[in-house]
Design a protein around this nucleic acid. Sequence first.
DNA 1: CTGAATCCTATGCGATACTG
DNA 2: CAGTATCGCATAGGATTCAG
Lengths: 107, 107
Amino acid sequence: MLQILTLVGDKWTILVIGQLRDRTLRFSELHRVVTGISQRMLTRTLRQLERDGLLTRTVHPSVPPRVEYALTQLGTTLLESATMLAAWAATHRQEIIDRRRRFDGTC
Amino acid sequence: MLQILTLVGDKWTILVIGQLRDRTLRFSELHRVVTGISQRMLTRTLRQLERDGLLTRTVHPSVPPRVEYALTQLGTTLLESATMLAAWAATHRQEIIDRRRRFDGTC
DNA sequence: CTGAATCCTATGCGATACTG
DNA sequence: CAGTATCGCATAGGATTCAG
């Protein structure tokens, strides 16, 4: 249970599946659109998501190699749930930032 | 935005606010009901949640000291959103565990 | 009881270099 | 192109000790 929530809380997980919302992307394309992610972390994140059945990894045997990642239906449902949380975050973002500033000021 | 999602993804955050869903708890009570949390992490988690306005910290000047923690309305809305995600996790928990096992087996 | 401060270890993760 | 392997630093976090 905690492992599942930890999955969602992971910074890169959300960003990766967010990029795959309605399209298929190659490794290099993901590397480009997920700003700031290292090759290492992208690989690891994709492996875990594949392992959990949230996305599929399709290898097209060609030269150069071509690997495409796409959300599964399970991954899509997770994205939808996570989107709700993102909506909460977006709604209260400024409020929280303000509180933080005030809290830090009163120390 | 990411900082907000990271907040939710944090292991202890969810467990702590979950315990405060419908009641006020003292530091020592939280320490007892949030299984496995160290004193250090409980303190830090509570500070951050207070800083972000998700809970209130009330000190009753007495001997021995008595400090009570309670969710704010903002904290309650977060808990509700997080609960939706927890519902997703609960629903698909077994499925994910199975997929993991199968994935690990085919290596 | 409710913390704050210190120490110490494990791990996370970026950077870099190498492979099919 | 799509990774794997290795190194090295920074940070997280547990254990312990001290304080109001």
